[in-house]
Design a protein around this nucleic acid. Structure first.
Length: 463
RNA sequence: GGUCCCAUCGUCUAACGGUUAGGACAGAUGGUUUUCAAUCAUCUAAUCGGGGUUCGAUUCCCCGUGGGACCGCCA
C-alpha cells in the first residue's frame, strides 16, 4: 500500500508550533511507510499570502529536520486546473451560479443571528427557475451539497464521525473574481498529487465532509483522513500567532535544540509506553496514528526546557559547541576565534547547569569577554578581609608553574584554615573576581579554563 | 445559539473489563557537593458528577457538567 501525505499550510502568517507538529506527524508516517511527504503552500488567498511566510515555513521545517519530497508545491500555480474542475462541476450539474450580492448574504446572516438560528446559505440559486439573473452581479459558483441523509467518515484518529448532510451548506468553490477557494483547490490538488492520507488539524474536520462530496461526484478516490487534536496555549484555547513562543523562531531564540523540540512535539498528544526520549530513528519506527490521543494538549514550556536540558547533556560536546557558536553569533555576541578553544575545552562543565544554549552562553561569558564587570551587589562582597584572602591566593598562585586541581586545592585549603573560614569564604570572592558574579561554574573549573596570566590579571585588578 | 469532538495527578501521558491506577515534567523534603545549579533518595498529587451493563468498570452505554473546534467569496 502506498503512502503519500502532505503538509499544506497557508502563508498568511508565520507557521506556529502546532503546524510544525502536524508536519512532523505527516513526515514521520511517510518515512515509516517508505512513502512520500509533500509540502504544498496554499496561497490562494492573494491578499494575505506573503512571500516572507513561505520562507519562514520552509525554514522552520528544515530547522527541525523535516525535508519534503520534491520541490514545494505552490497552489496558486495550479489555479487553471482548479477552475477547469469548477467548470466541469457546473456543466455536470454538481455546482451552480449564485447571484446573491454580498449585501444580501450579510442580511441573511444578521437575520439568522437575530432569530438565534444557525446561518446556512439558503440555496436560493440552487434552483433558479423563477429568478431573474441580475446583470450587475457577477456570480460565485457554489457546490451543490447533499441536502438529506447523513455521512459517516472513518477518521484514523477520531474513529467514526457522523454528521447530517443538512448542516453542510452549498459552499463557494469559485469566487466572484473567478478564483478558486480552498475547498476546491485542496481537493483538486490532493487528487492530482495522489495523496493517500490527509493528516491535518482537528479544525479541518468539517471541511472533510464538504470535500469528500467533491471526490464523490468527480468519482475520484477518497483519501484516508486523520484529524489530530490541536495544541492549546496555556490558557486552553487554540494556539494562535499571538501566543508567546509559538513559532520555531521563538524557540531558536531561546536556545532550544531542534532534536529537543522535535522530541517534545512528538510526545505531545502521542505516547509509546513510558518512553520519553526518542531518537529520530526511534520516532520513525515507533510513531503510529493509533497512539495519537483524541484530546487537545497544552503547551508546557518547562517541559520543553527539561527535554532540552537532556539533549544538551547527551549531545557530543563538539556538536554542542558548534550550536553554541552559531547561537552566539545570531543572538548574542560572536565568540572570538581566540576564545573558541577555551570554550570548547570547558564545554563539559559549562553545559552542566544549562537548560538552553543561552544558559551555556551566559556560563561562558567569563571566558568570552575580556573585561568582566562586577554587579554592585557582588562588589559589596569584596570587603577588605575578602580582598586580603584573594591577594594571598594570588601570591601563592603566582608561584605555581602549571596550575592543576591538586595544587589549587592545596592553596585554597590552606587559606580556609588560616583564615578560619569555609570554602565559601575563599571561593566566593575568587569567583567574583574572576567571573564577576557569585554564580557560575565551580571555582577550579573557572581557574583552569583561563590562562594563568588571565587569572593573575583579573585578581590583580581587584586590589 | 447550532453541529461535531473531547474528559486519568498542576502539565504530558500509561493501564486485553480484574494493577496498591504506572511513568515523565513541575512542586515539596532530605543526603551529597563548592555558592546558584547539578546529582541521588523520598514524598505530595488524578480516573469530572450521576445513573446503568457486569461477579468486577479508568475502560462499555446513557444523562448531566466542563473544555474545545467549526459555523467566511480565510485556509
Amino acid at each position: 500500500m502506498s503512502f503519500i501525505c502532505r503538509f499544506a499550510p497557508s502563508p498568511t502568517g508565520p507557521l506556529h508550533i502546532g503546524g510544525v507538529r502536524t508536519a512532523l506527524f505527516n513526515w514521520l508516517l511517510a518515512k515509516k511507510n517508505k512513502g512520500k511527504f509533500y509540502l504544498r503552500i496554499e496561497d490562494t488567498d492573494k491578499e494575505r499570502s506573503k512571500e516572507e511566510y513561505i520562507k519562514q515555513i520552509i525554514e522552520s521545517l528544515a530547522w527541525i529536520g523535516i525535508k519534503h519530497d520534491e520541490k514545494e508545491y505552490i497552489q496558486s500555480k495550479n489555479i487553471k486546473k482548479h477552475k477547469e474542475i469548477a467548470e466541469e462541476l457546473l456543466k455536470k450539474g454538481f455546482a451552480y451560479k449564485c447571484y446573491c450580492s454580498e449585501e444580501e448574504i450579510k442580511q441573511q446572516k444578521e437575520k439568522c443571528k437575530k432569530q438565534g438560528i444557525p446561518y446556512i446559505y439558503n440555496r436560493k440559486w440552487r434552483d433558479p427557475k423563477n429568478l431573474d439573473i441580475p446583470k450587475d452581479i457577477k456570480p460565485v459558483i457554489r457546490f451543490k451539497s447533499k441536502i438529506s441523509g447523513d455521512v459517516k467518515i472513518k477518521d484514523l484518529v477520531q474513529g467514526e464521525i457522523n454528521i447530517s448532510n443538512s448542516i453542510i451548506e452549498d459552499f463557494v468553490i469559485l469566487r466572484q473574481d473567478g478564483s478558486p477557494t480552498y475547498q476546491l483547490s485542496a481537493v483538486v490538488d490532493d487528487h492530482e498529487m495522489k495523496i493517500t492520507h490527509v493528516i491535518r488539524g482537528d479544525d479541518h474536520k468539517i471541511n472533510t465532509f464538504k470535500q469528500i462530496q467533491i471526490y464523490e461526484v468527480m468519482k475520484w478516490e477518497i483519501p484516508k483522513f486523520a484529524h489530530i487534536p490541536l495544541i492549546h496555549s496555556d490558557k486552553g484555547s487554540k494556539l494562535s500567532k499571538r501566543d508567546m513562543a509559538s513559532t520555531i523562531g521563538d524557540y531558536i531564540k531561546k536556545g532550544i535544540l531542534a532534536d529537543a523540540l522535535r522530541n517534545y512535539l512528538l510526545r505531545l498528544g502521542w505516547a509509546y509506553k513510558d518512553k520519553e526520549i526518542f531518537t529520530l530513528k526511534e520516532s520513525i519506527d515507533l510513531f503510529d496514528l493509533k497512539g495519537v490521543g483524541k484530546s487537545p494538549s497544552k503547551l508546557d514550556l518547562t517541559r520543553i526546557l527539561s527535554i532540552n536540558e537532556h539533549y544538551i547533556k547527551h549531545i557530543e560536546e563538539k556538536e554542542l559547541f558548534k550550536l553554541l557558536k552559531d547561537f552566539a553569533q545570531k543572538f548574542r555576541k560572536s565568540i572570538d576565534p581566540s576564545k573558541e578553544n577555551a570554550v570548547l575545552q570547558s564545554m563539559s562543565f559549562l553545559k552542566n547547569k544549562a537548560k538552553t544554549l543561552d544558559d551555556i552562553y551566559c556560563n561562558s561569558e567569563y571566558i568570552i569577554k575580556d573585561n568582566i564587570e562586577l554587579l554592585p551587589d557582588d562588589e559589596k562582597l569584596l570587603d577588605p578581609p575578602a580582598k586580603k584572602i584573594i591577594s594571598e591566593f594570588l601570591e601563592k598562585f603566582n608561584k605555581i608553574d602549571v596550575p592543576n586541581k591538586e595544587k589549587l586545592e592545596e592553596i585554597i585549603n590552606n587559606l580556609i584554615k588560616k583564615h578560619n573560614t569555609n570554602f565559601k569564604g575563599v571561593g566566593q570572592p575568587l569567583r567574583i573576581a574572576l567571573v564577576g558574579s557569585r554564580f557560575g561554574p565551580g571555582i577550579y573549573n573557572i581557574i583552569l579554563s583561563l590562562t594563568k596570566d588571565e587569572v593573575i590579571k583579573r585578581i590583580s585588578k581587584i586590589n
